[in-house]
């Protein structure tokens, strides 16, 4: 897709989607009176497999839904959870809206940037973590809040945040959030966002 303001940066070429992924997409399409409703879910599946909404994925989805690539890209570029650059294994999202800002989101951000050596919108060179800014994830009662692959960690101190990303990077056991589930890696969470699986009773039934 053309990036705003210029030619799109070079992006790795991705293999065609796996046959299972296509089969899953067809199941998603069948869920709705109009298959196009599955478009965003299908793009999540592309993200699960390629780490971002790849050009190969856009082409496949367009073909399956009988849309042009322009139509698919038009949707893909509208939503912030659909990414154009490959995500790290974990996406760490720091909320900077007032409740979190008042509670110290600024120092969280600085600590994380220092620890990871990357800024908002960037991914660590080892591909483990993508850091981003978000606009209120509506866990203001847990400010400052950070999401890791969309699981919320509340009341984080800069030290706890650094500890958390170290564990995420090293593959060690990650502390559970105050309520919610332990984050799963990129592929699993995007499959779940697509509407596939995820209602695993244990994960859904975690501590509240």
């Amino acid at each position: 897709m053309s990036a705003p303001g210029g030619p799109s940066p070079r992006r790795p070429a991705f293999a065609p989607l796996a046959e299972e992924t296509r089969a899953a997409m067809r199941r998603l399409m069948a869920r709705y009176p109009n298959p196009r409703s599955a478009l965003m879910s299908m793009l999540y599946l592309v993200q699960a497999e390629h780490g971002c909404v790849s050009e190969a994925g856009i082409e496949e989805v367009a073909g399956m839904l009988d849309l042009t690539k322009a139509e698919v890209a038009s949707v893909a570029t509208f939503y912030t959870m659909l990414k154009r650059e490959p995500l790290g294994r974990y996406l760490v999202s720091v909320c900077t809206q007032p409740p979190c800002a008042l509670a110290g989101a600024g120092s969280l951000r600085r600590a994380l940037e220092e620890e990871l050596g990357v800024g908002f919108g960037q991914t660590t060179p080892d591909g483990a973590i993508t850091l981003e800014e978000v606009e209120c994830v509506c866990v203001c009662d847990g400010a400052p809040a950070v999401q890791v692959n969309y699981e919320s960690y509340e009341h984080l101190t800069p030290e706890a945040a650094v500890e958390l990303v170290r564990k995420l990077r090293s593959g060690g056991a990650v502390p559970p959030p105050v309520h919610g589930s332990v984050p799963v890696p990129r592929e699993a969470i995007h499959r779940e966002l697509a509407g596939l699986g995820g209602h695993d009773p244990d994960r859904g039934g975690g501590e509240s």
């Binding site: 939503y79 959870m81 509506c138 692959n149 699981e151 779940e192 966002l193």
Partner: peptide, 17 residues
């Protein structure tokens, strides 16, 4: 459901089943 609400969505999904 808002996409970022992974946990809430999971709860709703489980409740639906």
């Amino acid at each position: 459901c808002r996409g970022e609400f992974a946990f809430a969505a999971r709860r709703v999904e489980r409740a639906i089943s």
